Simulated scan of single mutants.
Amino acid sequence: MRNLTILALLLVTSFNMAQTANDSISVDPQLQQNAAQRILSGNYGKAVTIGAYGEINYNQPEGDNGELDVQRLVVLLGYKFNEKTQFVSEIEFEHVEEVFVEQAFVNYAVSDNLSLRGGLMLVPMGIVNEFHEPTTFNGVERPAVDNSIVPTTWREIGVGVTGRFPDASLGYQAYIFNGFKSTVSDGEGGATGFLSGSSGLRGGRQKGIQSTIDSPTFSTKLDYYGIPGLRLGLSGYFGRTQAEDDVEILDGADIGIAMVGVDARYGYQRFTARGQFIYASLNDTEAYNNLTGRDLGSALQGYYIEGAYNLLPLTAKQRLFAFARYENYDTHADTEGGLVRNDAYNRTDITTGLSYHIAPGVVLKGDYQFRDNNVENGDVDDRLNFGIGVWF
């Protein structure tokens, strides 16, 4: 009850704050851009572009101490060599102490509707993996589907093409990437595995860090924007995981992956909605588990649906979205061999809260999460979250 009272007070306080400029992020999903797209869309007439986004969050699990964290600070650097050639990079500081390169690629515009790309890039799967700047999504934390099923932030090294078919109102992306790393030698003739039942593929992301590659993977996405206010996406990712030289000949050292996703975003006046469904079929997981001692499932599945409404008038310079999101995600949607499905991996989250855009590129967030799994009397703590997000 105390947590719900705090959330209610946040709502009341929000109405009393001063009005400032409109948020720079469009409600219309057809006009939304992520950080890389903003750099590539002209660099505001400058050769060098510098920006950043970041999140400072407070998480309070029920019955436990709360945690304050500078979850991430990402520095954006872009350079325009000429009218056709640009460089985009994102340097990420996580939890104050970890440093990663999130993106680093060259974009060459062959024509208005066709570009070639090469470097460290985001895998186009679902919504949040590409649109994860804190002012672009509701909720303090990213949807759990985009953590456990789509291992956001998911980026790998590759080459590909991107562009549009304007007459068909269709955008496209197609890339060849290195894949997930599944195993390394354990020094005793066996292998240590990075993939697991609880976190799925997340532990296998190589992130461009001395990435090993044995067989490339293929990633593609189509976006349809022919209906006003609506954006539809269809994603696919296909290939096998990568194993180091010392273990790649072992049975079960790598697995096959076929992942597909559909997503939708809609915006009309003060109402927005979004949803997505992701399914991944994994092959040879029985041999992988026998080799590594892991409990990787043979299928991952997750979906969510979310609605939000701006409580302030359209004439106001600020926006205050009340939202609710329902999501279900299961990293043991299916299993192979004698592995029994673990119902603790079949999880449901209901998140409801507020996103208050107080100025262009600044959002204050608060939400409460009702969390559960498919185990009777499963021990999953509900959680209260508050956060500050910026993007410029």
Results as ranks from 00 to 15, higher is better:
Arg72Pro: 01
Val159Met: 09
Tyr309Ser: 05
Gln173Ser: 07
Glu286Thr: 05
Met121Glu: 02
Asn43Ala: 15
Glu83Asn: 15
Thr292His: 03
Val123Asp: 04
Arg240Leu: 11
Pro151Leu: 01
His332Ser: 13
Arg240Met: 12
Asp251Leu: 11
Gln276Ile: 06
Ile249Phe: 12
Pro61Thr: 02
Ser182Pro: 00
Thr20Cys: 13
Lys317Gln: 15
Leu339Gln: 08
Ile358Val: 15
Leu282Cys: 04
Tyr368Arg: 10
Val123Cys: 00
Phe177His: 03
Lys221Pro: 08
Ala144Phe: 10
Tyr224Ala: 04
Phe15Trp: 10
His132Thr: 03
Val145Asp: 05
Arg274Tyr: 02
Val74Thr: 03
Tyr345Thr: 13
Leu339Thr: 02
Pro134Val: 01
Ile227Thr: 14
Arg341Ala: 15
Met17Cys: 11
Tyr368Phe: 15
Tyr224Pro: 01
Gln242Arg: 07
Thr285Lys: 03
Asp186Phe: 06
Gln173Cys: 05
Leu230His: 13
Arg117Asn: 13
Met125Gln: 05
Lys317Tyr: 11
Glu156Ile: 02
Leu68Ile: 12
Asp379Met: 12
Glu141His: 12
Val375Phe: 08
Leu4His: 13
Arg155Phe: 13
Val106Phe: 15
Thr220Cys: 10
Tyr304Met: 01
Thr352Gly: 15
Leu320Ala: 05
Gly179Leu: 02
Ala333Lys: 07
Leu384Cys: 09
Glu94Tyr: 11
Gln86Trp: 12
Gly54Cys: 03
Asn57Phe: 07
Asn374Gly: 10
Thr212Glu: 14
Pro313Asn: 08
Met125Asn: 03
Glu83Tyr: 10
Tyr266Arg: 06
Ser26Met: 09
Asn138Gly: 10
Gln276Phe: 01
Asn385Met: 11
Met17Asp: 10
Leu195Val: 09
Ser169Gly: 06
Asp28Arg: 08
Leu11Ala: 15
Ser355Glu: 05
Phe271Met: 12
Ala191Leu: 10
Val96Cys: 11
Ala8Thr: 12
Thr85Ala: 12
Lys46Asn: 13
Pro124Gln: 00
Gln60Ala: 08
Leu114Cys: 06
Ile176Asp: 06
Asp330Trp: 09
Ala243Leu: 03
Gly293Ala: 09
Thr272Asp: 09
Asn34Gln: 05
Arg117Ser: 05
Gly119Val: 01
Thr85Asn: 11
Arg231Ser: 14
Gly275Ala: 09
Tyr279Gln: 13
Arg265Ile: 08
Ile25Lys: 09
Tyr225Phe: 14
Pro360Gly: 12
Tyr108Glu: 08
Leu314Ala: 14
Asp23Leu: 05
Val75Tyr: 00
Phe392Cys: 06
Asp146Met: 07
